[in-house]
Amino acid sequence: MTDFWRVSEEKIREAYQNGEFDDLPGFGKPLELEDLSSVPEELRLAYRLLKNANFTISAEEDKLKQEMLTIEKLIQACGDETERARLQKKLTEKLLRYNQFLSKRRIKTNSSVFKNYAEKLEKRFL
């Protein structure tokens, strides 16, 4: 145990003995633990941070994202150039709608960093 850890534990113990935790919201009530079994373990901290920041995804936005992923898979598997062009146009329309959702939340989507991060998240969740 490091010195920092010992000092921290001692400060917490002193605060508890002095009753400094008695007036906290929810004192004496059971904790409401959220079931995070569907979230991969390495993403749970990020999930909690986003949830605590009231970052939510609407059902419509989630459905749109799923449609985009499906269209991307169809484009990859498509051999017909005409059909591929049609699917690409449809994907572009969906992407524009998705970016509108993000812009409503004031999330900038024109950054390559954002796009790379979004792609990595998609791969992890799929």
Rank of each mutant, 00 (worst) to 15 (best):
L24R: 12
Q17W: 07
L102Q: 04
G28K: 14
N52Q: 07
S8Q: 11
R97Q: 03
Q88E: 15
G79R: 05
A85E: 13
C78Q: 15
L95E: 08
Q66W: 11
N52E: 11
E81W: 03
I107R: 03
K89C: 01
L91G: 01
S38G: 03
L64F: 12
E10K: 15
S111F: 11
D23W: 09
M68E: 10
L95V: 13
V113W: 06
L31D: 14
L126F: 09
S111C: 12
L49F: 05
E61C: 06
E20M: 10
I57G: 01
L121D: 00
P25M: 15
R124T: 02
E32C: 12
E122F: 00
R44A: 05
L36H: 04
P25R: 12
L43Q: 00
V39Y: 02
R6G: 08
I12A: 12
N54L: 13
E83W: 08
F125R: 08
K63W: 06
K73I: 06
R48Q: 04
Q100E: 11
Y47Q: 00
D80V: 05
L96D: 07
E14V: 13
L49K: 02
P25C: 09
K94M: 09
R84D: 00
I57E: 01
L33R: 02
L95K: 12
E41M: 10
V39G: 03
I12Y: 11
I12L: 13
K123R: 14
Q76G: 01
E61Q: 07
T92G: 13
K73A: 13
A85R: 07
R13H: 10
Y16C: 10
L36I: 02
K63Y: 07
R86A: 07
Q100C: 09
T2I: 06
S37T: 05
S111I: 01
K94N: 11
N99G: 08
E34M: 10
S111D: 10
G79D: 13
E81L: 14
A118R: 12
E60W: 00
P40V: 08
V39R: 06
E119R: 05
F55I: 13
I12V: 13
E119D: 09
K120W: 05
S8E: 08
Q17C: 03
K65N: 08
E41L: 11
V7W: 14
E34D: 09
L36G: 05
K65H: 13
D35P: 00
D35E: 03
A118F: 05
L24A: 11
F101R: 00
Y16M: 14
L74V: 01
A53Y: 07
P30E: 09
W5Y: 15
S38T: 05
K104S: 13
E10L: 14
R105H: 13
K65Q: 12
C78F: 10
D23E: 06
L64C: 11
F21S: 03
E93S: 07
D80Q: 03
A118E: 12
L69D: 07
K65F: 14
D23V: 15
D35R: 02
T56Q: 04
Q76M: 08
A85K: 11
E9R: 15
M1E: 12
D3W: 08
A85Q: 08
K120E: 00
L74C: 11
G26A: 14
R13E: 13
E42D: 14
Y98R: 02
K90S: 07
Y16I: 08
I75V: 12
L49C: 05
R97M: 01
R106G: 03
D23M: 15
K120P: 06
M68P: 02
G19H: 15
K11L: 15
Y117Q: 10
E67V: 05
A118Y: 05
L49R: 09
